[in-house]
């Protein structure tokens, strides 16, 4: 049976440089990151090059992605949230394309590595902290003090609020990472059942149709998950940014 973990291996394609004693190589993961960032940029620039008043299909896709993310921000963080529009848009598109490309067989899923999702989540966390303190100063601590709470349970509430705030980057990053990892492992396991059964004679080939059907269904589910997790990542980012913009509960 094929190793379901093998698909997550990082392969060094060629070394690049050395920073602080760490070897920096161009890896398969790097290749797919370059593909995602370059692909998104090339697609958006190519489809909007004609700046048509009446968009063709591909320009509609570009505009749709723009309006989708813009609506998401405005519904969760209000008009002021549009300051972070390029950041949230980049985040959403990067995660979405990385997730979707990873579903193609023999590709690598950038977002199935905790270091990537953690780095993105910590970036969001730091932006919330820095923008919150820069914009509101010490009033940013109001975030942890809900209004209308009796004074005797306030310490407990503040403790819970601080704890939940600090655990945000963990849940934010693990959610995406775990979804991608689990989905790809499941797909791989069921796909390997097909070859396993298929090599066991005529009866096995008949039996292999069941996992094949399952893999087809799972692929559809994983497509949904790939989109949904990118959306969840983006909308959680918006909700956290909303805290930095409006710290009062």
């Amino acid at each position: 049976m094929a190793d379901p973990i093998h698909q997550f291996n990082i392969v060094n394609l060629f070394p690049v440089t050395q920073i602080g004693g760490h070897e920096i190589s161009f890896t398969n993961s790097a290749a797919f990151m370059v593909l995602a960032a370059g692909g998104i940029t090339a697609f958006l620039l190519a489809t909007t090059a004609s700046r048509s008043l009446v968009p063709n299909r591909l320009q509609s896709v570009a505009e749709l992605s723009y309006e989708f993310v813009a609506d998401t921000i405005q519904s969760t963080a209000g008009k002021e949230g549009m300051k972070f529009f390029p950041f949230v848009f980049s985040l959403f598109m990067f995660v979405l394309v990385a997730n979707l490309v990873g579903l193609i067989p023999y590709t690598f899923t950038v977002t199935s590595h905790i270091i990537i999702t953690a780095a993105l989540a910590i970036t969001v966390f730091l932006i919330v902290l820095i923008y919150g303190f820069w914009k509101h100063g010490l009033h940013f601590f109001n975030l942890f003090v809900p209004k209308g709470i009796p004074i005797y349970i306030l310490p407990l509430i503040v403790f819970i609020e601080v704890l939940s705030f600090l655990s945000r980057p963990i849940s934010h990053s693990v959610r995406l990472f775990a979804n991608m990892l689990a989905g790809h492992i499941t797909l791989k396991v069921f796909a390997s059942f097909i070859t396993l059964l298929g090599s066991a004679g005529i009866l096995g080939i008949a039996g292999a149709t069941l996992p094949l059907a399952l893999v087809v269904a799972l692929t559809a589910l994983e497509l949904l998950v790939a989109f949904l997790q990118a959306y969840v990542f983006a909308i959680l980012t918006c909700i956290y940014l909303n805290d930095a913009i409006h710290p009062g509960h």
Binding site: E23, A30, V34, S90, F94, I115, L120
Partner: peptide, 19 residues
């Protein structure tokens, strides 16, 4: 280290191109 290095490069590139 390699992953973070390329994530920073690609994501900053993407952000600048988008923004």
């Amino acid at each position: 280290a390699s992953q973070l290095f390329w994530l920073v490069i690609t994501f900053v590139f993407l952000y600048v191109m988008m923004a």
